[in-house]
Write a protein that binds this DNA or RNA. Structure first.
Length: 458
RNA sequence: GGCGUCGUACCCAAGUGGUUUAAGGGGGCGGUUUGCAAAACCGUUAUUCGCCGGUUCGAAUCCGGCCGACGCCUCCA
C-alpha cells in the first residue's frame, strides 16, 4: 500500500487515485529567467523519484510541468539585457531541458508555457469575477478576494485574521480590499515594455498563480491526483492556486499535495553573493557525474533538508561503484533471466511505499548487496539467486537511476593490461606496477583476478 | 509576533512506544584474500539518540520546559 505525506492533512495517507490505475500529476516548473540551480533540481529529482515509484507500481502517470515564461523576473531580465522576453525565456528553457536530461529525469508529458495559455487564464478570472470571488481594482488589476473563500489558509495552516503581514507588501497595493488579496491579472505598467495581452480589463498580464491553476485544469481536469513543488511554494503560491481553482470550478482541486524540503549548500541557504550557488553545469565541470548528484540528493528523505557538499561525491562514487561491481560479478556467472526478485525486494518496496523513504530503501538494498557479495565469496550462490540479483539491480536502478551506462574498456587499456600480465607471469613486479600506474592514468583501475585482469572506472 | 520543521556515532543518514541492549553508506582500525594492490568478505568503531523533567510495565520515539539550527509569512524549488 502506497502512502504519501499530504501537506493538506499534514500526515501520511494511503494513496488512492481518482481513476483506478491512472494518475494525473502536476509539478511546478521553473521560472525561466536564469539557470536553474541544484536546489531547484532537488525538487525536480524528488518528483522524478515519485514518478518512477508510481510507474513501478504500475500506474499510468500523466505528468504536466509548467514553464513560467512571464513574470517580474523574466521581464526584468529581458529589459536588463535589451532582449525580447521570448529570447530570454527560450534560452533558459532550453538550458533547463538540457539539465533535466543530464540528470536523467524522465521528461513530463507536456511542458505548457504560461504565455501560451493566457486566454484560459482570462476565462478563469472572468469566472471568478462572476462568482464574486474577484474584483477589479482602481489600477485595472484584478484581485482575488481572500475573504470570499472560507478555507483560505488551510494548506499552510494560516489564519488570515492573525497574520501579521511583512513590510514587503508594497505600498502601491493601496487599492485592495484586503492587503492579502492577490493579483489574478496585473494591469500594464510602463516597465513591462511590450509584454502585455488584451483582456476585458484592459492591457496587462496574468498574475503568477493563475498559470498553474489554468494549465493544470486544462491538461488534467478540474480535479486531479497529485500536485508537487518545493516547500517555499506552499505559501502563497499553492494556497492561492487552491483558492482560485476551487472557487472558479466549484469542485475539489487536488487530492494530494507533496512538497520537498530545501536544499542547503555547505550548511546554509544558497546565495549568489556567498558564492555557494551550484548549477548542474558547475557540478559537471567539477567532475561530478550526474549519477553522483542523484545519489547525493536521493540519499536523504525528500521532506528533510539536505546539505549538498562536494565532499559527498566520494560517498556517492563508492556507493555506485559497489553496485556496479556486484552487477559485474553476477553477470559473469549468469545470463539466464527470469522476472523474479529476491525476498529483500519486498522490504525495499515497503520502504518506498512508506512516503518514498529513499534512504531506508537504499539501506535495505545495500544490506542485500553485502549478503550477495558474501554468498559470491563463499560460492554458495545459485543460478536462481544470481538471476534474481540482476533483476533486483535493474529494478533498483529503474527507481534511483544512479548506475551510469557502462563504457567499454579502451583497447589501449586492454593492451597495457595484457602486457602487464606477461610481466606478472615473469614476476617482474616493478614493471607490473608501472604498467598499473599507466592504466590508472588512462582512468581505469585494473584488478588482478584468477580469471585475468578486470577493469573498473575511476 | 504568527505558522512550521529539525537536532541520532568522526561524517552522511533510517528508525516516531516493545522482534532496536539504534538500519545502511562513507571514513578509521584489525583480519581474510593478493606478489603488492584493487574489489569483496569478516570483526571493530553510539549501553545511546541536544539538555532537563514527566507519562508508561516499557521512549530516540508521547507530553512539558529549555538550548541550538532552520524555513515560510505576496511572486525563492
Amino acid at each position: 500500500m502506497l502512502r504519501l505525506y499530504n501537506s493538506l492533512s499534514r500526515k501520511k495517507e494511503e494513496f488512492i487515485p481518482i481513476i483506478d490505475g491512472k494518475i494525473n500529476l502536476y509539478t511546478c516548473g521553473p521560472t525561466v529567467y536564469d539557470v536553474a540551480h541544484i536546489g531547484n533540481f532537488r525538487t525536480f529529482l524528488f518528483e522524478d523519484f515519485l514518478k518512477r515509484v508510481l510507474i513501478a507500481r504500475g500506474f499510468d502517470v500523466y505528468h504536466v510541468m509548467n514553464i513560467t515564461d512571464v513574470d517580474d523576473k523574466t521581464i526584468q531580465k529581458a529589459l536588463a539585457e535589451g532582449k525580447s522576453l521570448s529570447d530570454i525565456t527560450e534560452y533558459y528553457t532550453n538550458l533547463f531541458m538540457k539539465d533535466l536530461s543530464i540528470l536523467k529525469i524522465i521528461p513530463a508529458d507536456v511542458y505548457p508555457a504560461a504565455t501560451e495559455h493566457v486566454d484560459g487564464m482570462i476565462q478563469m478570472i472572468q469566472q471568478l469575477i462572476e462568482k464574486n470571488h474577484a474584483y477589479l481594482a482602481q489600477d485595472g488589476s484584478v484581485y482575488f478576494s481572500i475573504k470570499s473563500f472560507k478555507d483560505y489558509g488551510s494548506l499552510t495552516n494560516i489564519k488570515m485574521s492573525e497574520m501579521q503581514h511583512s513590510d514587503r507588501v508594497s505600498s502601491d497595493e493601496y487599492s485592495l480590499d484586503n492587503p492579502q488579496d492577490f493579483a489574478l491579472w496585473k494591469a500594464y505598467k510602463d516597465e513591462d515594455g511590450d509584454v502585455c495581452w488584451e483582456s476585458p480589463w484592459g492591457k496587462g498580464r496574468p498574475g503568477w498563480h493563475m498559470e498553474c491553476s489554468a494549465m493544470s485544469i486544462e491538461y488534467l481536469g478540474n480535479h486531479f491526483d497529485i500536485h508537487c513543488g518545493g516547500v517555499d511554494n506552499k505559501f502563497p503560491h499553492h494556497e492561492n492556486e487552491i483558492a482560485q481553482s476551487v472557487c472558479a470550478k466549484d469542485t475539489p482541486f487536488v487530492n494530494y499535495w507533496l512538497h520537498s524540503e530545501f536544499l542547503l549548500v555547505d550548511g546554509g541557504k544558497m546565495s549568489k553573493s556567498i558564492g555557494n550557488y551550484y548549477c548542474v553545469s558547475d557540478l559537471i565541470e567539477k567532475g561530478m557525474m550526474p549519477e553522483e548528484i542523484r545519489y547525493i540528493l536521493l540519499s536523504a528523505h525528500y521532506r528533510t533538508k539536505v546539505n549538498f557538499t562536494i565532499e559527498k561525491q566520494h560517498e556517492a562514487k563508492k556507493g555506485i561503484q559497489r553496485i556496479i561491481e556486484l552487477r559485474a560479478r553476477l553477470n559473469e556467472i549468469n545470463d539466464n533471466m527470469d522476472n523474479d526478485l529476491p525476498l529483500e525486494a519486498e522490504a525495499f518496496n515497503n520502504a518506498l511505499d512508506d512516503d518514498l523513504d529513499s534512504p531506508k530503501a537504499l539501506g535495505i538494498f545495500f544490506e542485500w548487496v553485502r549478503s550477495v557479495n558474501s554468498a559470491l565469496d563463499k560460492k554458495t550462490i545459485s543460478d536462481e539467486q544470481s538471476s534474481q540479483g540482476l533483476n533486483f539491480i535493474t529494478y533498483f536502478d529503474s527507481i534511483y537511476s544512479i548506475l551510469p551506462a557502462s563504457d567499454s574498456v579502451p583497447q589501449s587499456v586492454i593492451d597495457l593490461a595484457n602486457e602487464r600480465e606477461i610481466t606478472r607471469q615473469n614476476k617482474e613486479w616493478g614493471k607490473a606496477d608501472i604498467l598499473r600506474e599507466e592504466i590508472l592514468k588512462k582512468g581505469w583501475i585494473v584488478k588482478d583476478t584468477i580469471d585475468g585482469p578486470k577493469f573498473s572506472r575511476i
